[in-house]
Amino acid sequence: MKQHIIPAIRLTIACILLFMVAYPTLIFLIAKAAPAGGEGQTVVANGRTAGYLLEGQSFTWDRYFQGRPSAAGYNAAGSSGSNKGPSNPDYLKMVRDRIDSFVVHNPTVQKGEIPSDLVTASGSGLDPDISLKSAIVQVSRIADVRKLPREQVMLLVQRSVEKSINGIEKINVLTINIALDQLSKEK
């Protein structure tokens, strides 16, 4: 063992220089050429930063499209999932309450039309997206609250769909809500 100590110490120092200093410095320099210089892409609305493109934020007002329930309360400095097991009775009650509350706020929607991603918490607590179906079931409510024609809001939804290569059709909640505010302003 003794003969290995000195080489081990020196080799560790070499590894620190290479993997803890040189490698991250290289990636840091490359990041300068990446979107937002590697500091996180922000979204600007009305001349101020309204959020991060990739991170969801809390929308509770009826006039906005609402994102997924978040166990972290959309705290972007403390991501977290609910970690509730599928059979947990408290958890199932929570989901039932969310469904009931959704039906109250969206009286035109039948229970069977509600997609589960709208009443289950995301993995990160910061999911920026909802499924296309989850956006569609909110259209009537938003159109009514904002006194916009339903077709116009539906058109906005259709235009905001991002289809990723796995075939999932999703909507970035922050982006569509900014567009929604724009739409109301133009009216």
Binding site: P115, S122, S131
Partner: peptide, 11 residues
């Protein structure tokens, strides 16, 4: 429609 979504991300 997307399966069991608790703890999962839409994307």
């Amino acid at each position: 429609p997307m399966g069991s979504m608790e703890g999962k991300e839409v994307r």
